[in-house]
């Protein structure tokens, strides 16, 4: 049960319209710092606005962020 709850997914596996909780950013310092500054830190909830094979568009605290697929893959999330 508990294991199931904690299951992390890549952000790229989340469908449009779903809300998720950021668990981890599995990237380099540059990416982490940049995402942190833009409000994507472990514990933030964000909504996927677009995930169609191209760049990901996310709703983070009311603003729209575009994230390249390569980067979105490094954002590990928990589905709510």
């Amino acid at each position: 049960m508990k294991c199931e709850d904690r299951k992390l997914k890549k952000l790229t596996d989340i469908k449009k319209g779903h809300q998720v909780l950021v668990s981890e950013i599995a990237g380099g310092r540059g990416l982490k710092s940049r995402l942190n500054a833009m409000g994507v830190i472990p514990g933030t909830s964000l909504t996927v606005i677009s995930m169609n094979g191209g760049p990901a568009i996310l709703d983070v605290m009311g603003t729209r962020l575009m994230l390249g697929r390569g980067m979105a893959r490094k954002v590990l999330v928990q589905q709510l």
């Binding site: 990416l31 940049r34 995402l35 833009m38 603003t63 962020l65 575009m66 994230l67 980067m71």
Partner: peptide
């Protein structure tokens, strides 16, 4: 190349 994160 720095990560491409951009506000829309």
């Amino acid at each position: 190349t720095p990560p491409f994160v951009m506000e829309l």
